[in-house]
Computed example of a mutant assay.
Amino acid sequence: MTGSEEVRCMLMRGGTSKGAYFLAGDLPAGPAARDDLLLRVMGSPDPRQIDGLGGAHPLTSKVAVVSASEDPEADVDYLFLQVAVDRPVVTDRQNCGNILAGVGPFAVERGLVAAGDGETSVRIRMLNTGESAVATFATPGGRVDYTGHAEISGVPGTAAPVVIEFPPGRKPLLPTGNVRDTVAGTTVTCVDNGMPTVLVAASALGVTGYETPKDLEENLALADRLHEIRLAAGGLMGLGDVETATVPKLSLLAPPRAGGAVATRTFIPVRCHTSIGVLGAAGVAAGLRLPGGVGEGIARLPDHGDRLRIEHPTGFLEIDAGVDPGADGNPPAVRRTAVVRTARKIFDGTVFPRAAAVPAQPQGGNDGPAPR
Score class of each variant (00 low, 15 high):
275 S>Y: 12
336 R>S: 07
106 F>V: 06
78 Y>K: 01
76 V>D: 03
25 G>V: 00
321 A>Y: 06
103 V>R: 03
177 G>F: 11
286 A>G: 12
22 F>W: 01
360 A>K: 11
12 M>L: 10
268 I>Q: 06
332 P>K: 09
324 D>M: 03
282 A>D: 04
170 R>L: 14
42 M>N: 08
365 G>A: 06
310 I>P: 01
152 I>W: 02
30 G>C: 09
282 A>R: 05
71 D>H: 08
204 A>D: 15
31 P>M: 05
192 D>N: 15
154 G>M: 05
92 D>S: 08
187 T>H: 07
319 I>W: 01
56 A>H: 04
250 L>V: 15
55 G>P: 07
16 T>Y: 05
149 H>D: 13
14 G>A: 07
59 L>T: 13
318 E>L: 01
195 M>F: 11
153 S>L: 08
27 L>V: 01
72 P>L: 11
227 H>C: 13
261 A>T: 13
24 A>G: 00
114 A>C: 06
305 G>N: 04
54 G>K: 07
331 P>D: 15
110 R>V: 11
305 G>Y: 03
312 H>P: 08
325 P>A: 09
42 M>G: 06
12 M>G: 02
210 Y>K: 11
75 D>L: 04
350 T>R: 08
298 I>D: 09
79 L>I: 01
16 T>I: 04
10 M>K: 03
74 A>P: 09
159 A>W: 03
311 E>P: 02
227 H>Y: 14
229 I>T: 06
272 C>I: 05
21 Y>H: 08
59 L>N: 04
68 A>E: 02
163 V>G: 02
33 A>V: 07
186 T>I: 14
228 E>L: 15
67 S>D: 04
325 P>D: 09
32 A>E: 15
310 I>A: 00
168 P>T: 12
331 P>E: 15
208 T>K: 13
65 V>N: 00
39 L>R: 12
74 A>Y: 11
164 I>P: 02
258 A>S: 14
261 A>N: 05
69 S>T: 08
237 M>H: 09
347 F>G: 03
211 E>H: 12
96 C>R: 00
165 E>S: 13
353 P>K: 02
318 E>C: 05
96 C>K: 00
148 G>D: 10
107 A>R: 07
281 A>W: 11
286 A>R: 09
146 Y>F: 15
242 V>M: 09
8 R>A: 08
44 S>V: 10
